[in-house]
Nucleic acid binder design. Structure first.
Length: 499
RNA sequence: GGCGGCAUGGCCAAGUGGUAAGGCAGAGGAUUGCAAAUCCUUUACCCCCAGUUCGAAUCUGGGUGCCGCCUCCA
C-alpha cells in the first residue's frame, strides 16, 4: 500500500510520491520565540515527528527543515518588558524550545534556520517580487499585491471578492490606508524609532512574517518541496501568503503537499496565549506527566482533528502508557529470566530499531502490516496504537506470570519476536520505554527518605510475620499518607513507589 | 456574513456500504492475611428526519449542536 495524505491544497486524500524518488523534503513552520512552547506546539511537532519517523521507517531519506522566527513584535515587546534585547529573548527561548522538544523525544530538525540569518534571501525575494510588479512600496513598507496572483486563495479556499467585506475594518487604519487591497500584506516593514532594524533597499526595517518562510524554503530546500507542515491556524493568511510570494517569485509550485494539524482545545476552545488557557510543555512535564504520556495522548487522536486537553484524558493516557511501557520493558527487565539476549532500553530509539526487526515470514507480519496500513491511511495513529496494544497484551501477561514465578509457559522465541516488533513499531511513533523513575530523583520536598521507608517496611514485615495485621496495616497507612504506596510481591519482597 | 471541519458506549477514540478496533473508567474473576499493584474475562439501538440500496455509523438531501479560520497564533 502507498502512503496517502490529506492535502489541504486539494482537500483530498492523495497518494504520496516524492519529487525525487527515495528522498523527501519537508518544511515545518516553527515557533516565534518570545515565550515557552505550550501543548499546542507539542501536539503539532509530535505529529510531524511521527510523519518524519514513519517516512524514514519506510526507507525514505528525509530532509526536515524547521524555521525559527526570531524577529517579531512580541519578541520586541518581551524584550522591552524585561529590559533586555531582542537577541537575548530569542536566544533564550530557542534553547528552551530545543530543551522541550528533546524532552518529548522529537527528533531535532536537520536545519533550524532563523529569520535574522536569512536576510539576504529575504531581500532578494522581495527585490524579485518588486521587479515582477507584485510588490509595491508605501511609506517605507513594502507590500505584496494579492491581485497579482491570479489563484490567490487556493489553499484556504476563499476568493478575494467574497472575503473583502469581512476583512475590512480589522486592521490598523494607518496600515489599511497604505494598502491597495485589504488582503495585501507586508513583505518589509519600515523601522519605527528605537526598534532594531536591518538595512535594505527600501530603508531600514525588518521582514514581514510570511516572507521568511518563503525565503528559507528556497534557501534550504529549493523552489518546490514535497511537504509543507503547520497548524491549521496557519492556513490563512500565513500559508496562503507564502504560496503567493514564492510562486510569483519562482514560477514554481511551492509545495506539493500541505499538511495541517488540528488545534488543542481546552473546554472546547482553542488553546492560545490570548485566551490564557494554555499549559506550557515545561509546566506539564514538571507536574509529573512523562513525555511518553503526552505523546500517547496526542497520538490517540487523529492529527487533523481537534484534541481536547483535560485532566481525565491525561490520566487515561498515563495509565495507558504505563501498560505499554511495561510490555516494552519486559525484555530488558526479565531478559535473564527469559533467557533472551540482553538489550538496552534505549537501543530501540528511532531508526536503529529496524536493524533488529523480525523475520518477515513470522505470523507477526500480519500485525506489522496492519500497523503499516493504518499509518499509510493518512497517519492513522489511533489505529496503529491499537496494533501496539494488541502486541503488548501477551507480553504484559508474560510479565505477570514471571512475577508469579511461573515463567516456563510461553517464554519462547515467538514472544521475543513479538517484543522486538513492539519495540520497533513503537519507535516509529517515537514511543520509547521509560525506565521507572529513580528514587533519587523523586524525593524533593518533604517526603520520607529511602532509609526511613525501608525501616517502616521492615517493621511491617515483622508485624506481618507475627500476624499482627493491625500494626502492619497501620504502618502501611502511615506511609500512604506520606505519599508512599507499598506493593507486596509474591516473592515476599515489598516494593514501594512515590505517588 | 464568507470558507472549512466535527457529531460513535460513562469518558477518549478508530472505523467511509455487509450487522461496531483500541485506550481509560466500571463490573466479575485470579492473586493477596486484607489491600495495592498486576494479569484474565466482560460492557454500543453509531445526534435527528427523509431518501438511495438486498443491505448504511459509513452514500444523498434537510435539520440540530459544537469547533476552527477570515487579526498574531502550532
Amino acid at each position: 500500500m502507498t502512503l496517502r495524505l490529506t492535502n489541504t491544497l486539494t482537500r483530498r486524500l492523495e497518494a504520496f510520491e516524492p519529487l525525487v524518488p527515495g528522498q523527501v523534503s519537508i518544511y515545518c513552520c516553527g515557533v516565534t520565540v518570545y515565550d515557552l512552547c505550550h501543548l499546542g506546539h507539542a501536539r503539532s511537532y509530535i505529529a510531524w515527528d511521527v510523519l518524519r519517523r514513519y517516512l524514514q521507517w519506510r526507507g525514505y531519506a528525509v530532509t526536515f527543515v524547521q524555521n525559527v522566527t526570531d524577529i517579531d513584535d512580541k519578541i520586541l515587546a518581551r524584550a522591552a518588558t524585561e529590559g533586555s534585547s531582542m537577541e537575548a529573548v530569542s536566544e533564550r527561548n530557542i534553547r528552551e524550545f530545543q530543551t522541550d522538544m528533546a524532552a518529548l523525544g522529537i527528533l531535532p530538525p536537520d536545519r533550524l534556520p532563523r529569520a535574522t540569518r536569512c536576510l539576504d534571501g529575504i531581500r532578494q525575494m522581495i527585490t524579485e517580487l518588486e521587479a515582477s510588479g507584485a510588490a509595491y512600496s508605501a511609506d517605507g513598507d513594502v507590500y505584496f499585491s494579492v491581485l497579482k496572483k491570479a489563484d490567490y486563495g487556493k489553499l484556504s479556499g476563499r476568493s478575494l471578492e467574497e472575503q473583502q467585506e469581512g476583512a475590512s475594518g480589522r486592521m490598523g487604519e494607518a496600515e489599511e490606508a497604505r494598502k491597495r487591497h485589504p488582503f495585501d500584506f507586508a513583505l518589509w516593514k519600515g523601522a519605527k524609532p528605537e526598534e532594531p532594524s536591518f538595512p535594505s533597499p527600501w530603508g531600514p526595517g525588518r521582514p514581514g512574517w510570511h516572507i521568511e518562510c518563503s525565503a528559507m524554503v528556497r534557501q534550504e530546500l529549493g523552489d518546490t518541496i514535497d511537504i509543507h507542515l503547520g497548524g491549521a491556524d496557519l492556513i490563512f493568511p500565513h500559508h496562503e501568503n507564502e504560496i503567493a510570494q514564492s510562486e510569483v517569485a519562482t514560477g514554481q509550485a511551492l509545495a506539493r503537499f500541505w499538511l495541517h494539524n488540528g488545534m488543542v482545545n481546552v473546554g472546547g476552545e482553542k488553546m492560545s496565549k490570548s485566551l490564557g488557557n494554555f499549559t506550557t510543555i515545561r509546566a506539564l512535564l514538571n507536574s509529573g506527566t512523562t513525555p511518553m504520556t503526552l505523546r500517547l495522548l496526542v497520538l490517540q487522536a487523529h492529527y487533523r482533528k481537534p484534541l481536547d486537553f483535560t485532566a481525565a484524558a491525561l490520566e487515561a493516557a498515563a495509565t495507558g502508557w504505563k501498560g505499554l511501557n511495561a510490555a516494552l520493558l519486559v525484555g530488558d527487565q526479565q531478559a535473564a529470566a527469559l533467557g533472551w539476549p540482553a538489550a538496552t532500553a534505549t537501543s530501540a530509539i528511532c531508526g536503529s530499531a529496524q536493524a533488529d526487526s523480525v523475520d518477515p515470514a513470522a505470523p507477526l507480519e500480519e500485525a506489522r502490516q496492519r500497523f503499516s496500513d493504518a499509518m499509510d491511511d493518512d497517519l492513522n495513529t489511533s489505529a496503529a496504537l491499537a496494533v501496539l496494544f494488541e502486541l503488548a497484551r501477551p507480553l504484559r501477561s508474560l510479565a505477570n506470570r514471571l512475577e508469579r514465578g511461573d515463567a516456563a509457559s510461553g517464554a519462547d522465541d515467538d514472544l521475543r519476536k513479538r517484543w522486538l516488533l513492539l519495540r520497533e513499531l513503537s519507535a516509529v511513533l517515537g514511543l520509547v520505554a521509560e525506565l521507572p523513575a529513580t528514587e533519587a530523583a523523586a524525593p524533593g520536598a518533604g517526603g520520607p527518605s529511602e532509609a526511613d521507608i525501608q525501616a517502616v517496611i521492615e517493621a511491617r514485615r515483622l508485624a506481618k510475620a507475627s500476624k499482627d495485621y493491625a500494626t502492619a496495616d497501620g504502618l502501611r497507612d502511615q506511609l500512604r499518607s506520606a505519599g508512599i504506596e507499598l506493593i507486596d510481591r509474591p516473592t515476599g519482597l515489598t516494593e514501594w513507589i512515590r505517588k
